[in-house]
Every structure is written in structure tokens, then in C-alpha cells.
Amino acid sequence: MRVFVTGATGALGRYLVPGLVTAGHEVTATTRKPGRVAGLREAGAEPVVLDGLDREAVIAAVLDAAPDVIVHQMTALTGGMRDIRKPDKLFAATNALRTRGTDNLLDAAERAGTRRVVAQSYAGLGPDRRPGPPKTEEDHDDWRPIPAASGGRAAIEHVEETVPARVPEGIVLRYGGFYGPGASDVLLDAVRRRRMPLIGGGTGVASFIEITDAALATVTAIESGPPGVYNIVDDDPAPVREWLPYLAEIVGAKPPPRVPAWLARPAVGEFVVAQMTTSRGYSNAKAKKTLGWEPRYASWREGFRAWVAG
């Protein structure tokens, strides 16, 4: 198939593009940075420098590629921890790509007659109102209303509602927390430096996905699978109090410092405190059953060890 991949030089795109080329697909891959064109060409893709917020440029590029499938992996995540108390400020560019950028791609898909669009969404730590069992795709994300993070929640909802509604084969992949080579070096650095504390009781539950497992799930969704939303996470949702000390141990760091929620709140904000204390995690049962996908790393325990050892 002809596959148009946006955000092709991001954490996931770096594995997705070679995977698609190896599978025999003809790949057009976009990046915002001209300096990354050579790498995309070496990976076997046809590179295009593109700003996802430039509607006319997006439509022109898609019409030129005439893809069978469009893959929306556009984000503007830098891995930095600045403005952590103000998530909407930190993720402003990504929120724009998830709203205006999504609309631009869907407009392009309609103009080009592309029936299948596969878009990125989020299944990481969330400020859920209260603890509970892992969320399925049918569960409403009952996030606590936090003013500093309202734009991010609205942007995620826009992707999840708009993509399946506007194209015949709209698929949204909710990825858990990425880890693996090149995927979350900032997390390893924070743990090594003991700059990631265990807040409150560490009862917030995280769902992770190793980066090559995420790429394989994406290839699977591109090639087959019915429209809809899928949680792309491993089999082992885990509270922060389990995975954070474990990661510290295997990187050779001291245990993370423990900080009461009331003391952490002024430093990191309500959003992070809620992530660390009330997040519920996600279930991957639908993706495994309907897409026929299985993560190579069923648990973050084995995946973290491979990541750190690599």
C-alpha cells in the first residue's frame, strides 16, 4: 500500500517507517525539520518537509502522495520538564497538532479519497477522579477537571471523536507510556538523578508500551483491523509505587524520594499529583482480540530490563 506517515521522525516514527518499508509498503514520510530528510530517505521512505498546521500544504502533500492510508503521529514533544505545573502550556504545540493538525489531515483524506486514517492518542497516566480497574475503550475517561490541563484533554477527545466519524476506516490508537531506545531518555535521567519522587502513596496506575511493540501495533492497524479506538498497552498495568522503585533499582539509583501530596502540589501542580495518585491504567484486551496483536514485552518488568541493558 501507499502509506503517508506524518511525524515520521518522532519516537515512534523512527521505528514505524522502517517497519512499513520492510513490510513492502511505499512510504511517504513527513518531518518539520529539513535536517532529518536524509535519514528518512535512508530508511527507504520518500521524505517531505511539512508543517502539519499548514492546511493547504498538508492537502497538497497528501494529494501528491495519493495514499491508501494516512498515519497521524504528529506531536511536538521535546522531552523537557519545563512548565510541568502548566500542562496546557507545555503541550500547546501538540494540542494544536491534535486539533487543527488532525482536521487538516482529515480534510486532505477526504480530498484524496483516502479511506483509512490511523491516529495517535494517549493511554498514559491520567488525572482520573478516583482509583478503579483498568479502563477499556468503552469506559468514559472520567478525568478530574484541572484548569491547567483542560486543553490537553479536549485535544485528545477531538482526535478520538473526529477520526472515526470523518473517514470510513478511522482508527485511533491510544498508546501507553512509551519506553525503550530513544523513547523516554528523560525518564531514565530523572530516575538516576532522583528527580522523580514517589508522590503520596504512589497509587496511580500506569500502562506502558515498549516503543517497538507500539510500532508493530501501528503496522497491524495500518494493514488491517476494523475502525475504532484501541488501547495499545502491555498486559501489566502497575501503580507508581511498584514500577518507579523497580526502575530505580535496575538503573543502579537510590530509591526515589517520597513526598506527601500536599507538599508536592505547589512544586509540580495538581495534574501531576493526580497522575501519581488516582490514574487507573488501561486494558489491552480489545487490541489483542480484534487486531490480533501481542506485545513482545508483556510486562514493563522485562521491558525495562531490556531497555536499561541495551
Rank of each mutant, 00 (worst) to 15 (best):
P260D: 04
T290F: 11
V163C: 07
R265G: 02
R111I: 05
T31S: 04
A43I: 07
V21F: 14
G200M: 10
V205E: 04
L263D: 07
T114C: 08
A96L: 12
G44K: 05
G228H: 14
P295E: 09
A38H: 13
T220I: 11
V240E: 13
R116Y: 06
D54S: 01
R129W: 10
V49W: 03
D235W: 10
R130C: 00
D141R: 15
V27M: 10
W293K: 01
G113F: 09
G19M: 14
R192A: 13
I156H: 14
T277D: 01
A183V: 05
E46Q: 15
G113W: 08
A190W: 08
E161C: 14
S184R: 05
G152T: 15
G39M: 12
H158G: 06
T75H: 11
Y175E: 09
G151L: 06
T218R: 12
A267G: 03
S207E: 08
G132Q: 13
T278K: 08
Y246H: 13
D185C: 06
L105R: 07
G124M: 04
S283G: 07
G80Y: 02
E110R: 15
I232S: 08
Y15A: 03
T94L: 00
T203S: 15
V62D: 06
D128S: 13
Y15P: 02
